[in-house]
Amino acid sequence: MKAAYLYKLVSFVDWPPGSLPPPGAPVNLCVVGDDPFGATLDQVAQNQQVNGRPLIVRRMATVSKSSGCHVLYITGSKRQSIASALQSVKGAPSLTITDGTEARGSVVQFVVREGRVRFTVDVTIAAQNGLTISAKLLSLALSVRDGPTS
C-alpha cells in the first residue's frame, strides 16, 4: 500500500525549476536502507510518469546529496540512521519520506491510523528543500507542521 502511495505523492509535489532532470530523463525514487517492498514497488512504479518523466526505483544503503535522488523513502539501516540520512540530504530539492511520526525531519511521514496508512506533512522542511506541496495533499494530511523547526 505504501508503495502505491510513494509514487502518488510525487504528483502532488512541485520541484523548484531546474532541479528535475530534463524531460525524458528518469526521476529517481530511492529506497534508502532496508527495502520493505521488494518487487511490489517496481511493479507499481513501472510505466508511471512524473511530469513527463519516467520513474526509476533505486535501492541504496546510504545516501548523500550527490546520490541524485529526487524522492527518498528512508527506512534507516545499521550503516546510516534515518536521522543521519535526512541530515545528509537536508536542503537538497528532494522529497523525503519516512515512517512514523517520531522520525522528525522528513517532508512526509507515513502513519498507520485505525488500520489505514495516513500521512503527516512538514511544510517547513519542504520549504527548506525548495519543494511546494499541493494544497490537495495538505488537506488530506493528518497533520501539517508549519513553523520553525525545534
Partner: peptide, 15 residues
C-alpha cells in the same frame, strides 16, 4: 474531481 484528487490517490474514503 479536483477536490477528491488526493482523497482518491490515497484511498481516503472518508474525505
Amino acid at each position: 474531481a479536483a477536490s477528491v484528487t488526493a482523497a482518491l490517490a490515497f484511498d481516503d474514503r472518508k474525505v
